[in-house]
């Protein structure tokens, strides 16, 4: 029998997943349209969303397939691009404190995307207690929206947005808008140095290397600055 706390976490999961469902559907729609535009069948587009479930990597996947890149090279490129996900689970568990649990980790880890991680982190920062039910609802609600959006986009076809440039522009901006809103939701003065360094390192890494290097430089650089900032605070407090 579910405890009151578990029921509360489940309800919180349904509330927290609404932004992800609303944000994911149009982005996945764009992916479905882009995939069919580059020659993938609707089934192939759906399979990528079903198996990979990583937005940016899926957009890169269709570009690599269109360019004729060898499967092994393309697969390893996409996997390298997603290496940042190594940090997400431990970060959430560290924030979860005494509530941490991984009994169903094999399940909810599948859906631990950038946006699900960001939404979970934002909820925990606002006082939500960690539970695996919360994570399953958050992750698989987003997953369902992603699959539905992909199907709708693939069904609409490659030329769906050609006569609607304003809708295309709005859909293109959905993902940065979601990240910015998530960032604002967890923003505090203490984190500003880490955020600024992350932003600067992302720009430098992308300009002088690649977008994947930029992602790594930003995350690692910002986190390292955060470590030293927190250490300095601890010293000052002491």
């Amino acid at each position: 029998m579910a405890t009151a706390q578990e029921k509360s976490s489940v309800m919180a999961g349904f509330q927290a997943v609404i932004p992800l469902v609303l944000g994911y559907f149009p982005i996945a729609f764009s992916f479905g349209v882009a995939a069919t535009r580059t020659g993938l069948s609707p089934l192939e587009a759906f399979s990528l969303s079903l198996i990979v479930f990583a937005g940016a990597a899926q957009f890169l996947a269709i570009a690599l397939l269109a360019s004729g890149a060898p499967v092994l090279v393309a697969g390893l490129t996409l996997a390298a691009m997603n290496l940042r996900h190594l940090l997400y689970g431990p970060t959430l568990l560290q924030r979860a404190g005494e509530d941490r649990s991984t009994r169903w980790g094999w399940l909810w880890a599948f859906a631990l995307t950038d946006e699900v991680f960001g939404a979970a982190l934002g909820a925990l920062a606002k006082g939500q207690r960690f539970s695996e039910g919360f994570m399953v609802i958050l992750g698989f609600g987003a997953y369902g929206s992603w699959l539905a959006g992909t199907v709708a986009g693939a069904w609409a076809g490659g030329g769906a947005l050609d006569s609607w440039p304003a809708v295309g522009a709005a859909l293109d901006f959905m993902l940065p808008a979601l990240f910015l809103a998530l960032l604002l939701s967890i923003l505090s003065a203490r984190q500003v140095p880490a955020i600024l360094i992350a932003a600067a390192a992302t720009v430098v890494g992308t300009w002088y290397g690649s977008s994947t290097l930029g992602l790594f430089a930003g995350m690692i650089g910002g986190a390292v600055v955060g470590v030293f900032g927190r250490k300095a605070e601890a010293v000052d407090a002491g």
Partner: peptide, 21 residues
């Protein structure tokens, strides 16, 4: 622990900038 605590805001800021570039 400090590294992981700082990773979240840094990761979200990074993803936002990567989308904006």
């Amino acid at each position: 622990a400090r590294f992981l605590a700082a990773t979240g805001p840094a990761a979200i800021a990074t993803l936002f900038i990567a989308e904006m570039l």
